[in-house]
Every structure is written in structure tokens, then in C-alpha cells.
Computed example of a mutant assay.
Amino acid sequence: MTTNSAGFPAAPEVLRYTAFATDPAGGNPAGVVPDAAGLDDAAMLAIAAELGYSETAFLTPGVGGTGAPGSSERSYSVRYFSPKAEVPFCGHATVASAVALAERDGAGPGDYVFATRAGTVPVTVAEADGVLRATLTSVAPRIEEAAPDDVTEALGALGWAPGELDAALPPRIAFAGARHLVLAAATRARLADLSYDFTRLEALMRRLDLTTLQLVWRSGEFDFHVRDPFPVGGVVEDPATGAAAAAFGAYARDLALVPADAVLTLHQGEDMGRPGVLTVTLRDGDARVRVSGAAVRIPPGA
């Protein structure tokens, strides 16, 4: 544990980044603690709660690498905390963390390995037109049927009528590091009007071990608008959700909504005034899903 000049534990460095946007006012803010060695669960939860972002990532250099600039394998163990609880995996905080590491101490673009509770997640940072983008590769995904009674309860909590769903995109529970219930709205107006029973939806999500609901409206062959209620994390809505994007990519492929080899564009945060763009890449013959996006540091005081 790092100590200060008086020999007391030093406060950990906490960075603030927004992911899936190039404007600090867009995308999804995340906290990044680049060296969480010595922090216990209570300390990490307290930091996440104080920041108030949907997630904060806590990184510790891992056994597989030093995490130092120039290291051929920059490996970290990573834990993710919302203001209320730990979550197994968080995509936007992963993207934010990788870009933060690339910028910190001049480490630069390159490959990282994140060991998460959900499994090993490789991340590559690359620069294009002066912007750093990170691409994470999910753990192996899986898709499950959603029980009709659970779908009915979710719709009741959302205030949606069954007829407002898009029958071409049936409800499923999708996993690519965390579990998400996918519900597709038949119209953009239905997706835009989000006002739900926080307590009722939280209870359902805890029972089903869901991280978010992935609410979707299909705007084109490979284009989707999405929203993610996140009451189990103490947040009404997540502005840009990389874990849900990975799960949705697996869902879309599993239901043959898109080809096995495809690039999807997900638009999220517009209805919150924090627009972001998530790129989801599917590769034929590889079950894993890749999610890409830019990330930028949030200026002090912003």
C-alpha cells in the first residue's frame, strides 16, 4: 500500500473518464483507480458511492504482467463497483480504464489483459485521428429464454404494454460478462418515454441476477438505439453500457437478426442528453463479441 510522507496510507489516485464519446459531456462517466492495491471492499464501495457514477473500476497490476509502460503484456486484475454493490463486469469502465492507462505515464496504445470476476477480457487501445479508442473482447456469451411471467413483470414495472414490443426481436436474457434482459420496443417513441417503478424493477432484477435491462429499438439493418435502466446499481439509467452491448451482439447473432460476421452501431444516451456510440463487432467462427468506443478524460470541476 502506498503511504504518504507521514507514513499513513495515501489516498488512492482516482481518475474520471467518459466512455463511448469524444466529448466529456457525452457517453458514460466512470471512475478509474489505476492502483487499488490495499483497498478492501468497503473502501472501494465508498469511493464508488462518493463518485456517484454507474461504475468505478479498481485496477491492480496482475501476475501476468507489470502494467508498466513498455511491458509486452500489461495485465491487471479489475473489480467494478456501482454506488450500491460490486458488479462482475462493466464495459464502459473497461474502455475508460484502458484509455486511462494508455494516457497515464505515456504508456501509449497497446494490448491489455484484464482479469475480471466474469473472466479474462483482452483490451486493445489504438489511436486514430488523435483519438484513443479501446476494443474489449467479451467472455464467451450465452443466451437464455426469458420466462413469460418475468417478462410480464418487467413490462409492468416499465409501464409498457405487451403490444408495444417488437415481435421480431423477442425477449431473451443475454450474457457476455453480466446478465441483461433484452426487450425491444416497437417504436422510437416508446423507447424515448422511460419512466418506471424503480423499486419494483429492482426487485425483479435482483431475483433474476440482472445487471441492466437492455431496451432496444431497431432503426436500421445494423443500427439500434438502446437504453439501460440500472436500479440495482442505485442508478436510474446507465448512459452507455458496454457489457449490455456485448450481450446484445450475442443476442442479435443467436436469433439470426444479423449475419454471423457483422458490425453493429448502438446509439445510447441521447434521451439523457449524454449521447454516445458503441460499436459491436461479430466475427464468424468466434463466439466472443467485441465492443469498441472512444474515451476521454473529464476535466476537473466538470
Results as ranks from 00 to 15, higher is better:
P300D: 15
P69F: 08
A43K: 12
V232M: 08
D209S: 12
A203F: 00
S97H: 01
A245T: 13
T60G: 01
V216W: 06
T137I: 12
A57I: 07
T22C: 07
P29A: 07
A25N: 13
S54W: 11
A174L: 10
A46R: 12
R218Y: 08
F114L: 15
P109W: 06
R206K: 15
F81T: 07
A294P: 02
V182E: 02
V236Y: 13
A240R: 04
M44V: 06
F248N: 01
G285K: 02
I143Y: 01
P239R: 02
I143V: 15
V226P: 04
H267F: 12
R179C: 04
A167G: 11
V78P: 02
L132C: 09
R74L: 12
G220Q: 08
V182M: 15
E50V: 14
V182T: 08
W160S: 02
A167T: 14
A43R: 14
A168F: 01
P299V: 13
I173V: 15
R133D: 00
R200D: 06
P83A: 07
P170R: 03
R200V: 04
A98E: 05
A186R: 15
E86Q: 15
L158W: 05
A161W: 05
L278W: 00
V280R: 01
R288E: 07
V123I: 13
T56L: 12
I173Y: 07
T2S: 11
R200N: 04
V32D: 01
L278I: 14
F224V: 06
P229T: 10
T116V: 13
L215I: 13
A19S: 14
A36T: 03
S82L: 11
P259K: 01
A260N: 01
R274L: 12
I47P: 04
A140P: 00
S5W: 10
A134Y: 02
I298R: 04
G159S: 11
R16G: 01
L51I: 12
L266R: 00
V113P: 00
P300Q: 10
V258E: 03
V280Y: 04
D111E: 14
V33N: 00
R74N: 08
E13Q: 15
R79F: 03
L101H: 07
L183N: 01
G65Y: 06
V226A: 12
A134I: 13
S75F: 05
Q214P: 00
P162T: 09
D129T: 09
T265K: 10
L169W: 07
E237Q: 11
G276I: 05
W217K: 08
R206F: 12
P229R: 04
T211M: 11
A11D: 13
Y112I: 04
K84H: 10
G119S: 09
P141S: 05
P259F: 13
F224E: 02
T116I: 09
Q268P: 10
N4G: 11
L213G: 05
W217I: 07
P109Y: 04
